[in-house]
Amino acid sequence: MTWRAAKVVEVRPETSRTKTIAFEVPGWPGHRAGQHVDVRLTAEDGYQAERSYSIASAPESPNLELTVERLDDGEVSPYLTDELRPGDEIELRGPVGGYFVWDARVEGSVLLVGGGSGVVPLMAMARQRRAEGSTIPTRLLYSARTIEDVIYREELMHLGDDGDGFDVVYTLTRVQPPDWRGYDRRVDRDLLAEAGPAPGELGLSFVCGPTPFVEAVAGGLVELGHEPARVKTERFGPTGG
């Protein structure tokens, strides 16, 4: 696995704390939705910092896109979100991972559950699903603090438009806009029972977010009778920086 030079071609703000960075990566071998890359930064004195980021773009996309949340005390994310400009180069290697990846052969429905920027690999899955013309019934249950914290808001509004079996259910846990018709509480067993498929109908569930979120959701799904093997999890934590 070699480190490759990745050239920034676009930096796009998503929310006040997240940006999508599109890279041109010569020789990129392709990826599957849900996989990551390792990003390496090298300081002038030789000090290196490495972090793992989920890929946001579908394999079909011409550029490799990462959506990065700025962690104020982070070592890597503030550089990526604040300093990078088109033309800059960083090093990355990958794709890596195979456990938390979209599987188009799934039978039954798919439930994607994202907390905060945990939506990023799930978005890659939704994009791949659409690019492939898949009609696997798929619901994204997305938990964010406020409507302003919802990443990919515009795109998500239209992803389910063509009646291909994709929809999004939101829960805003802190502040809800007037006339809000989505949920307004944390994802727990009761919410999953209302918004998720019945145990016999679930093909696969992908759950990604901060560790406490993933524990609550995965635990809730298993309590509802879903087979643990159908619940794929990916945790990220404050050490992600």
Binding site: M1, G97, P210
Partner: peptide
């Protein structure tokens, strides 16, 4: 909260074992 899962070690593990490890 500091606990992650094996996915976060995918790159390091693949570097050592030379195959996808998750």
């Amino acid at each position: 909260e500091l606990m992650l899962d094996g996915n976060a070690a995918a790159g390091v593990l693949q570097e050592i074992f030379t195959v996808e490890m998750t």
